[in-house]
Design a protein around this nucleic acid. Structure first.
Lengths: 103, 103
DNA sequence: TAGACTATTAACCGATTCGCTAATCATTGA
DNA sequence: TCAATGATTAGCGAATCGGTTAATAGTCTA
């Protein structure tokens, strides 16, 4: 898992907003660009970065490219950082919980 | 809550490692610097940034300055991002859970 | 296959980041 | 009050980021 790349990607407000949009529904580059005060090439580069981090997946549909959120990758990264900073006292073995509650 | 500053702070690997150390125990600047292949001024600047983001708190003790992790601020930020990207289907009202499990 | 449309890459620019060393500030204690 | 110690700030250079416009690539359709 690409921890460094993921948190580098999350450092950008526009990228986090892109992720929030994609959390609602998958969107194409131009659909996203229409929602941002930013050129399409700029959006495209943010998406490339997010894809390299494994936070979004792309799927070509004809001329368009549809992006969707890789929700599990993001939640796993957030959970892993949370675990890292959980002090020893809080890291005592706990009964496994179902995935949704694990993060 | 300083969302932008927090995720900007988390973009740096050394800073995340600092947070992991502070998750175990509070440490002074020089104690941290001894654990990193980095000069004390560099560590100090990372700590200033983390403090500005509200992720650590400083407490002077004589000539030393002790830094401790602001665990709740970090966990709250991670949780808030997680909530932002949780699609509508997953955002259905849920019974409040105790703080530790909320993240 | 030519043209239209979507997406990406290239090239550039200003701002920021991140490390360093040197200098300064803060505190203690002789 | 001066010297020692720990922490921070200043100032510098190399690298990266984030946006722009222009050029290129990929895909559909007439």
């Amino acid at each position: 898992m690409d921890f460094d790349r993921i948190f580098a990607a999350l450092a950008s407000g526009p990228r986090r907003r892109i992720l929030a949009f994609l959390g609602q529904t998958a969107l194409t580059t131009s659909e996203l660009a229409a929602r941002f005060p930013m050129s399409a090439p700029a959006v495209s580069r943010h998406l490339s970065l997010l894809e390299a981090a494994g936070l979004v997946a792309r799927e070509r549909q004809g001329q368009r490219v549809l992006y969707r959120l890789e929700r599990d990758a993001l939640l796993e990264a957030l959970g892993r950082l949370a675990a890292q900073v959980d002090g020893p006292l809080r890291r005592e073995p706990q009964p496994p919980r179902p995935p949704r509650e694990a993060i």
